[in-house]
């Protein structure tokens, strides 16, 4: 079966995210103080062949941990769709 997956990678909470801070400053300079925080991350879309959703998730999670994110610095989230 083919599955599509999305891995989202962000700097971990507590790690300075300079791009997020820059975007936040820009938003505030637009006169929108209601926005309190911005984190900029990346989204990686993958298409995989796997026996079932669980196998696909296991493979993508391994990839996210070992390659797509650097756990020293970054958190990741995995979504898998049939």
């Amino acid at each position: 079966m083919k599955f599509t997956a999305e891995v989202r990678v962000h700097y971990r909470p507590g790690t300075l995210d300079p791009q997020g801070q820059a975007v936040l400053r820009a938003i505030h300079s637009m006169g929108l103080p209601a926005v309190e925080d911005v984190r900029v991350g990346k989204s990686i879309r993958l298409t995989v062949e796997a026996a079932d959703a669980e196998a696909a998730r296991a493979l993508i999670t391994r990839l996210a941990r070992d390659l797509l994110a650097n756990p020293v610095l970054e958190d990741y989230g995995v979504e898998v769709h049939a």
Partner: peptide, 10 residues
């Protein structure tokens, strides 16, 4: 050990 992140001022 550790990692190298984006410069603080981008």
């Amino acid at each position: 050990p550790g990692a190298l992140a984006r410069n603080a001022d981008i």
